[in-house]
């Protein structure tokens, strides 16, 4: 009887691990390659950014300072450039994403231990923190655009927006998944008998998005050019 119950609970795979979880980890491993390539591209262009054309300098000179070209402040050939990266604001958004990971792991804990109210509360907290992070990113992109930096400005702009934009797209997908999971948990049947597994799987994706940002925050914002 006990053996039959154990057989019913055992994952159907030769590895002893639920195949869906293995698939998720393979997906996350492939995402490492994706973001690794984008980070490498960013580093190549961050290392040596060419000077802007005179037309750009004239168009973006405000009070003797040129904006929207370099990531950090610098003076080249007597011309003062203001860096676009706003580290205090990004530090705040990094804190928000870190806290969303804490909220996510508490939601997983609630789901795996049958504490459904706890699961719902922390899923909602994760969702809201994810939306706040996206708000920070929209604000940052808007500020950069106002200063003259966009995808077409220079190689730094192109690689920066592609890298952080793809990360933002991943956060957006995560927010949508969290929202749909939260809505599904409100149904009369809830998330069904595998609630713990479903929330854990989305949690894996969410934490991955967080670790990618841990690397981006250091490489893009903190490491000097």
């Amino acid at each position: 009887m006990a053996q039959a119950a154990h057989a019913a609970e055992a994952p159907h795979s030769s590895t002893g691990i639920d195949s869906r979880k293995v698939l998720m980890w393979i997906f996350l491993a492939s995402e490492c390659l994706f973001f690794g390539s984008l980070i490498a591209t960013y580093l190549v262009f961050k290392g040596d950014i060419p000077l802007p054309a005179p037309g750009f300098i004239e168009a973006h000179m405000h009070d003797g300072v040129v904006t929207g070209w370099f990531p950090t402040d610098r003076v080249v050939d007597g011309v003062e450039y203001a860096g676009v990266l706003n580290i205090p604001v990004t530090s705040a958004s990094t804190f928000v994403l870190l806290m969303s990971s804490v909220a996510m792991v508490l939601a997983v804990y609630g789901a795996q231990n049958g504490r459904l109210k706890m699961m719902k509360i922390w899923l909602l907290a994760t969702l809201l923190l994810g939306i706040i992070f996206l708000g920070f990113q929209v604000f940052e992109f808007h500020e950069f655009g106002a200063e003259g930096l966009n995808l077409a400005t220079n190689q730094f702009g192109a690689s920066f927006f592609v890298l952080t934009g793809f990360h933002g797209a991943h956060v957006t997908v995560g927010v949508l998944m969290l929202g749909s999971m939260l809505l599904a948990s409100m149904r009369r049947t809830g998330l069904g008998p595998e609630a713990g597994f479903h929330v854990e799987t989305i949690g894996l994706y969410w934490h991955f998005v967080d670790i990618v940002w841990i690397v981006i925050f250091t490489v893009v914002y903190l490491v000097p050019a």
Binding site: E9, A10, Q112, N113, P193, E194, G196
Partner: peptide, 16 residues
């Protein structure tokens, strides 16, 4: 599979 069962099915070797 219960929520606890789903937890156990993850083949965890140490306590969380």
């Amino acid at each position: 599979m219960s929520a606890e069962g789903g937890h156990a099915a993850g083949s965890h070797e140490r306590s969380h």
